[in-house]
């Protein structure tokens, strides 16, 4: 996972996002949140459409399960609590289907 600073902030998730990998992905997400807070990203950027909203790029995600969805949802929730807007982007169809099937559409602000 890497986080890029640009016109809008972006972080990427790669590989499998499941029970067997969440423990490894969690520190990176926690680190991402801490960096965003340190950089003063909170408080002003409430709308994802505005520049500076965090984009969570799922292009490289090969699989996701309920545990992975939960981690992602908690991450987005953590961002929201700190007034940081975020949006999932580049979601592969198979991953989108799984997110829908597992009922995380509304948590991820996705329409199906």
């Amino acid at each position: 996972m890497n986080t890029e600073a640009g016109e809008s902030l972006k972080t990427c998730l790669d590989g499998e996002c499941s029970m067997s990998t969440v423990a490894g992905k969690y520190p990176a997400l926690m680190n991402c949140l801490a960096r965003l807070l340190d950089s003063g990203a909170s408080g002003e950027r409430n709308d994802c459409s505005t520049s500076g909203a965090l984009l969570v790029d799922l292009t490289g995600v090969t699989d996701i399960d309920a545990c992975g969805c939960q981690l992602l949802a908690l991450f987005l929730s953590g961002l929201k609590q700190n007034n940081i807007s975020a949006q999932l982007t580049n979601i592969p169809d198979t991953i989108r289907s799984k997110i829908h099937f597992l009922g995380f559409d509304s948590e991820f602000n996705l329409s199906h």
């Binding site: 029970m19 969440v22 423990a23 992905k25 969690y26 997400l29 926690m30 949140l33 801490a34 309920a66 545990c67 969805c69 939960q70 981690l71 949802a73 908690l74 991450f75 929730s77 953590g78 609590q81 099937f101 597992l102 009922g103 995380f104 559409d105 509304s106 948590e107």
Partner: peptide, 27 residues
């Protein structure tokens, strides 16, 4: 079947255990 996952109202992301389930599902 329709499924909707829900998270607890407030959770401190820095203190979660990612392998512990805190979600509930309304179906």
């Amino acid at each position: 079947l329709t499924v909707t996952a829900g998270l607890p109202a407030t959770t401190d992301f820095n203190s979660i255990d990612p392998e512990i389930c805190v979600c509930s599902w309304r179906m």
